[in-house]
Design a protein around this nucleic acid. Structure first.
Lengths: 250, 250
DNA sequence: ATTTTTAATATGTTTGAACATATGAACAAT
DNA sequence: ATTGTTCATATGTTCAAACATATTAAAAAT
C-alpha cells in the first residue's frame, strides 16, 4: 500500500509529546487501519526514519514497543512485518466465555444482548481511570445453555479503544478487540465474591432471590497496564464453576 | 542491601549474549531473589551503568523492558523502584493467605488448627493423582480476623513431599515447603463457586446455614505439573473478597 | 510559620556514528 | 542437482554526548 511511502503522515517536531511516542502512535494507527497488509513488510527503518526526520534509534524505540506488545515481528534480514497469527487462540481459555464454553463442548446462546452508550458511574470510572460521567460503550448480556440463563454480565469499554457501539458483538469479544482495534489484553484483575442474588439478578437469571451467585468484577489491562474493560458478572453457581489456571511468572 | 553495590555481579563483556540482555537477566534475578526491599530505590542508572561497564543507554534498554513487564517503576526525580504491588510476581501474595492478609494490613489468627494423617477420599486422591485410601497429611484450619471466623479450609499434601505432620504449620505454608522440602509451586488450578453454607460450614464459620459462601477448590502443581497440594476452602463472603491478578502467559 | 524561588538531580529524549550479525540471493564449485 | 562461498542488506548492539523535564529539597522571601 505504501509503495511510495510519501503517504505516511509526518510527525510534529514542535509538539511536546516525544517523537518516539508520536512514531509509536502513528504506527499503531497505521496498523489498526490496516494500511499494511498483514505479513507485508514494513518500510525499512532507515527509510521511515528519514521520512519522519528522526534518528533510527528513536524509531527503533517505537518499533520495539510494538514488538513487545506483539503487533510486529522483526526478522534479521527479512525486515519488520505485521504479525499474522493473532493471539486470539491464546485468549480462548483465558478470558473468553465463548471459547471457554466451546472448549467444554457446552453449546450456549445469547438470551439478551444490548449495546448502549452510557455515562460511566463512579465505580466504572474509577476502574477505567476516566472521569465519572464520561460516555462509555456498555455491553449487557444474558447467556444460557439450553433455556436456563447461566450468566448475566455488563461490560464497560475504555473510550480510547474507539468502539462505536456499532461493531459486531456476536463474535468473541477479544477477537474483535484484537483484530479490529489491536488491543491485546495482558492482565486481568479479578475480585470474586459469593453473594445472595438480588431481586434484579434473580429475575434475570430466573432463580429465587437469595440464592448464592458468583459475582466477578474484573478489570482487563493491556501490556502498558492501561485499562481496557471493566466487567461485572453474575454466574448461577448451580450450573457453573469458575475455573482458572494461574501460573507463577518469572 | 546494596549500599555499596560492589556486591552486584559483573557482566561478561566477552559473552555472545548482548549486554542489555545480560543486564536484564541480572536485574530480574536480583529482584526475584529479593535483593531489593520492595519500594526500595534501585541504584541510579549512572552508577549501575558504570559498575557494569556499559553505557547508560544500554542499561536503560534493560530497565525499560522490566518496566514494560511491570516489575519496576520509574519516577522522574525519585528514581527507579521495585513495584510494590506484585500480586502476580510474588509468591507470597500469590498463594499464601498469611501474606495476603498481612499485605492488606488485616491482623488474623488461627481459631482452630489440626494436623492429621488421613486416608485420601476419592476426590482428594483424584486431584493428587494417588490411589484412594492412601494416607496423606491433612491440615485443617479456621482463621479469623478479630473474633469472626473468616475462612475454613482443609489441605491435603502429596505424599511424595515427605511431610511428617510434625512440622511447624504456624509459619506460612509455602515458605515451609520451599525452605524445608524445596517444593516450589508454579501452577494453581482453581475452581470457584458460590454455594449456600451447609450446616457444617455454617457452624464452623458461625453464620446461618444457607448464607452464600465462596468455595474454592484448588490443586497446586510444581514446575513439572506434579500435584503438591489439594485444598478446599470456604470463605465468608460478607467479610472477604477473593482478589487475583492474572497475567496472560506469553 | 508559610509561601515562593531556586538549585540539584535522576530520569527522559534524541542524535549520529560505528560495528556486529543473521540471512536471502547470487554465484561458484562439487 | 547439490553443496558451498561470497556479498549485500536490514536489523541488532552499543556508545558518548547533549539537552529536556519533572520533582525534591534547600534557600529565600513573605
Amino acid at each position: 500500500m505504501f509503495e511510495h511511502m510519501n503517504n505516511i503522515p509526518l510527525l510534529d517536531h514542535d509538539s511536546k509529546t516525544p517523537l518516539h511516542q508520536q512514531a509509536e502512535d502513528q504506527l499503531r494507527r497505521l496498523i489498526r487501519e490496516n494500511h499494511f497488509r498483514e505479513g507485508d513488510p514494513f518500510p525499512k527503518e532507515t527509510d521511515l526514519a528519514r521520512r519522519w526526520g528522526i534518528s533510527r534509534n528513536t524509531l527503533r524505540q517505537a518499533i520495539g514497543s510494538l514488538v513487545k506488545d506483539g503487533l510486529l515481528e522483526r526478522k534479521k534480514r527479512a525486515g519488520t512485518t505485521v504479525r499474522k497469527k493473532k493471539i486470539t487462540t491464546d485468549l480462548s481459555s483465558w478470558l473468553s466465555f465463548t471459547h471457554e464454553m466451546e472448549d467444554k463442548g457446552i453449546p450456549f446462546k445469547d438470551l439478551c444482548h444490548t449495546v448502549e452508550l452510557k455515562k460511566a458511574g463512579k465505580e466504572t470510572a474509577r476502574k477505567l481511570q476516566i472521569p465519572a460521567g464520561e460516555k462509555v460503550v456498555t455491553l449487557e448480556r444474558i447467556r444460557s445453555t439450553g433455556k436456563n440463563p447461566m450468566v448475566y454480565f455488563e461490560s464497560f469499554f475504555h473510550p480510547r479503544i474507539g468502539l462505536t457501539g456499532k461493531e459486531n458483538y456476536k463474535r468473541p469479544l477479544y477477537e474483535l478487540l484484537d483484530e479490529e482495534f489491536h488491543i491485546i489484553p495482558v492482565y486481568s484483575q479479578e475480585e470474586i465474591r459469593a453473594v445472595a442474588a438480588s431481586e434484579k439478578i434473580a429475575a434475570l437469571l430466573k432463580i429465587t432471590p437469595g440464592t448464592p451467585v458468583l459475582e466477578r468484577k474484573r478489570v482487563v489491562l493491556d501490556a502498558g497496564r492501561k485499562p481496557v474493560e471493566y466487567n461485572i458478572c453474575y454466574y448461577r453457581s448451580d450450573w457453573f464453576t469458575y475455573s482458572i489456571e494461574i501460573k507463577r511468572p518469572l
